[in-house]
């Protein structure tokens, strides 16, 4: 029997995160396979209806800590540690996302619990859960079992599908948790700043992704020209967004958007896992990278080992010529 507790993250408007909903769906499935139950934790200003609505994804019960702030990990560690100790959960499950990593890690320390991260699948056997984790650039997958109770499972982005198979309304229980002294020493000044214009890339059938290999901000022109020649849009990696080269709204990956265009052309992108999780479902992936060992070559459909400065302008011209002629 596995009783599983899931953290459901929400934004400032109260919308639950898709990956959290996926984690609840996954927990519900695993719980039903093992004869346990799935429950969720929410913090902050979440209405009765919104909390109870998590039942639609399979949560039997929702623990709500209204006085705990959303958005920083440590207060939520306090809440989850208490809910787990008071109710005896066997596992804590997180959808992919940065906060899940931090909360899961905090629980590991607090409860002396084993943790597995970047989990792509969870198997139930004999009432216990085994986490599958790809390691070493996805070149092997390890099956990880837990000695401790609880076991902490942190999913990879988009690992768990959202499934509205629940039976409706979840029971909502308000919990009062006294925050640890150190949990109150970090305060959110501003949350979720978008930085840069709001660009829609989700609807584009063709995306040209630009990475640090472009060399400098100005060289995004190469990506823009190429995208324009194909009627597509331009996307970016965190590295270049953090550097201020391109707007956050164009970022693909773990803390950005997830896309699945007909073509994803990655230019000067190494193909780190956190980027890959946001674009690996693209129908066709074309990569231009000067390093033949770049991870992107492990999962692209067509890869060109070469200098993007030489290739991109000529490619743009050739496509324009082809379209014109």
């Amino acid at each position: 029997m596995a009783d599983i507790l899931v953290y459901a993250l929400h934004d400032d408007e109260g919308n639950f995160n898709k990956n959290s909903l996926g984690a609840i769906s996954e927990a519900a499935k695993l719980a039903s396979e093992t004869g346990g139950t799935a429950a969720a934790v929410v913090v902050g200003d979440v209405s009765d209806d919104a909390a109870a609505g998590l039942g639609g994804y399979g949560a039997a019960k929702v623990y709500r800590a209204k006085s705990c702030p959303e958005g920083l990990a440590q207060p939520i560690v306090d809440v989850m540690a208490k809910v787990i100790s008071d109710n005896g959960f066997g596992y804590a499950l997180f959808g992919g996302g940065l906060l899940g990593f931090e909360i899961g890690a905090g629980l590991t320390a607090r409860l002396g619990a084993g943790v597995t991260m970047e989990v792509t699948a969870v198997k139930a056997a004999d009432g216990k859960l085994v986490a599958e984790r790809p390691v070493l650039q996805d070149s092997a997958i390890v099956d990880v079992g837990y000695v401790s109770e609880p076991g902490i499972i942190i999913g990879r982005l988009n690992a768990f599908d959202v499934n509205e198979s629940g039976s409706g309304s979840a029971e909502v229980e308000d919990v009062e948790v006294e925050l640890s002294e150190w949990s109150t020493k970090a305060t959110m000044v501003t949350r979720g700043e978008a930085r840069g214009e709001d660009v829609n890339i989700e609807d584009a059938e063709i995306l040209v992704g630009g990475g640090r290999g472009l060399g400098e901000k100005e060289n995004f022109k190469l990506a823009e020209d190429l995208a324009e020649s194909m009627g597509g849009a331009v996307a970016a990696t965190r590295a270049v967004v953090d550097a201020g080269w391109y707007p956050y709204s164009t970022q693909i990956g773990q803390t950005g958007k997830t896309v699945a265009p007909k073509l994803y052309l990655a230019a000067g992108i190494s193909g780190a896992i956190q980027h890959k999780v946001g674009m690996q479902s693209s129908e066709n992936i074309l990569a231009i990278n000067k390093d033949q060992n770049a991870p992107i070559f492990e999962f692209c459909d067509l890869g060109v080992v070469g200098d993007l400065h030489k290739i991109m302008p000529k490619l743009t011209e050739a496509i324009k010529a082809k379209k014109g002629g």
Binding site: T108, G112, A113, G114, V115, T116, V130, P134, D138, S139, A140, I141, V142, D143, V144, G145, Y146, V147, S148, G151, I285, Q292, F297, F299, C300, D301, L302, G303, V304, V305, G306, D307, K310, I311, K314, L315, A318
Partner: peptide, 30 residues
């Protein structure tokens, strides 16, 4: 340690893409 590696498995087979080196850029673009 509170976790145990129970097994190591290869990743699912994925058809390898074609990777080639840019020697002559005109040909590459073609």
């Amino acid at each position: 340690s509170q976790t145990q590696v129970l097994a190591i498995n290869p990743p699912p087979e994925k058809e390898a893409g074609e990777v080639f080196e840019d020697e002559d850029t005109n040909e590459t673009v073609e």
